[in-house]
Write a protein that binds this DNA or RNA. Sequence first.
DNA 1: CTCCAGGTTGCGT
DNA 2: ACGCAACATGGA
Length: 313
Amino acid sequence: MQSPYPYPYTASNDGKEIRLEAPVPFSFDQNLSYLSRAAGESMHRVLNGCVRKAILVPNETEAALIEVDGQEDGLTIRFLSPDRPQAPEALQAAADYIAEWFDLRNDLKPFYKLAEHDPLLQPTIESYWGLRTIGIPDLFEALCWGIIGQQINLPFAYTLKRRFVERYGEAVVYDGESYWLFPEPETVATLTVEQLTELQLTSRKSEYLIGVAGLIAEGTLTKEKLLAAGGLKAAERMLVGIRGIGPWTANYVLMRCLRSPDAFPIDDVGLHNAIKHVAEMDRKPTKDEITAMSAEWSGWEAYATFYLWRLLY
DNA sequence: CTCCAGGTTGCGT
DNA sequence: ACGCAACATGGA
């Protein structure tokens, strides 16, 4: 795991738009298609071939609403709100957010090379050429989403997230639509279990969310500490030590937030179903079978998982 | 009605 | 270390 560098961008003359180059393989359409797939998603909105999302930028009290458009070789990010030229820090923050969101810092060519010769992955790289693991750059959001999604079906998980976000988050309103910011850990840390069970989260998940919020609010748990832990396994141990975070959630977060290409949520039932489907099995694979099938994915388990998920979701 | 969902904990062998 | 009930509710 490497520490992130400022992602390069070029700014337009009006100071409201930036352009990022994307490394090959990249397809904006594939990534937009992924972002469009979940009707219940509350953290972004796909409109007219673009995706809109509210983000926080440094030195501003007001959240920004950005619109991301793209082509085969890059992305364009426009500030819709506030509608004025942006400070360089805000432009850089948007560039870095998008680079994390679309995983522009990982070079996928080695994954494509190994996938070409892999019976399970070969069909996926043809169908989804240029798809990147769409991320969840905010650590608290990634952990909450992992916890909320534990052991329930995906549509219900989206419903619970929406209730949580719309109750405890803040919104930027634009064109009559609300664009939500994820609730702050400082806010969630002070909630009671009852305030979350009202939303139909289980009392256990409510405890987990409040606990994780506290760890992040007090600075005990940060992305920087996870990145500095000393590799994937050390970061995983750090996460699994937290109540409510098991191996699945830890690897899910390492994959979608810390951008570890070798994170591997091997217990994931969606992965099991995808393998059953693509390998034309009449039952789900055992853990040992998955270990055998994934032996050649070494270093790219996260991408293999994400591409296989795409077959089902 | 039954079974399964993008699992984890805590307690029992 | 490994097995297993409990958690709780929605959707097929």
